[in-house]
């Protein structure tokens, strides 16, 4: 089991995840943008497009405009997720001492570990609660219930379990895992060294967390989670620069037309003259 999940599967996961995403992106790129279906009001410069796309991607502009509750839940979930992912990288990479590396702040490595731990705890909890809200919403809001497929709920439950296990390892002292152990494990994997004998893999929670993450990554390219990329692909189609051609009618001189009294019946025009 340890051999399979901890040693062999990670390589398969990385391969399938990468190839899968390339396959999906290639599939999208293969179809063309046939007609201009830009949404108006027009964005007239590339910077306007950049602002629109980033405000949609990072601030969830449309959710904010049309559904505040969903906006709050979705933004918290994604923001926490982003931080949790980033936290995994810097946490294991720098053993929690990443903030000490920022020059000029005077943060000691000890303080950095404290901050790292605190942020990790906060985002771990926020992520879990936001996921729970999204699941709650799927069961309680009538219109949302009607668009939900079983897999939509399963994804949320899956993530709740995955994040839940992560939180257990963080908050239950008995199951706590030191950054160093994980760092050594990951570097061993990268260097193609054997990892089966590592103590880390004796933690059932770690092994479960690792397995769930890997299954998620394998399924990711073939699932709706691809919306991370799909959102940019779609925005690239519907939010582009468009400038209306200049108005103006050929050979039209309104002033002289009015002077000539065009359209005004002769009788009246004559009256006018008099």
């Amino acid at each position: 089991m340890k051999l399979l999940i901890g040693q062999i599967l990670p390589y398969i996961t990385v391969t399938l995840f990468t190839l899968g995403i390339l396959y999906r992106l290639g599939r999208w790129a293969g179809a063309r943008i046939v007609h201009n279906i830009t949404l108006s009001p027009w964005l007239q410069t590339n910077s306007q497009v950049a602002i629109r796309v980033s405000s949609e991607a990072f601030l969830f502009r449309n959710l904010f405009r049309f559904d505040r509750a969903l906006w709050a839940g979705a933004l918290l979930m994604h923001f926490a997720l982003l931080n949790v992912l980033g936290g995994h990288i810097v946490g294991f990479g720098f053993l929690g001492e990443q903030f000490a590396l920022i020059p000029g702040l005077g943060i000691t490595p000890e303080l950095s570990r404290e901050i790292s731990g605190l942020l990790g705890s906060i985002f771990g909890i926020v992520l879990w609660i936001a996921l729970l809200y999204l699941l709650y919403r799927r069961f309680t809001k009538e219109a949302v219930k009607m668009v939900t497929e079983p897999s939509d709920n399963l994804w949320l439950i899956y993530l709740l379990v995955l994040v839940g296990i992560g939180n257990i390892m963080r908050f239950v002292p008995g199951y706590h895992i030191e950054y160093e152990l994980v760092r050594d494990y990951i570097s061993a994997l990268i260097l193609f060294h054997p990892v089966v004998d590592m103590d880390l893999l004796n933690s059932v929670f770690f092994l479960a967390h690792l397995l769930l993450v890997q299954i998620l990554l394998i399924v990711f390219p073939f699932s709706k989670l691809m919306h991370v990329f799909g959102m940019f692909a779609e925005r690239y189609i519907v939010n582009r620069v468009y400038n209306d051609p200049a108005p103006g009618l050929p050979n039209v001189d309104v002033a002289s037309a009015r002077k000539a009294g065009l359209g005004v019946p002769d009788g009246d025009a004559a009256e006018e003259e008099v």
Binding site: A31, V34, L63, A74, V144, K224, H227, F229, M231, V238
Partner: peptide, 18 residues
Amino acid sequence: KKFRSFVIAMESCTKCGL
């Protein structure tokens, strides 16, 4: 295979219900 706008609509919806 021709319309990307269609492919993305088929493959990227998360069913948020908005």
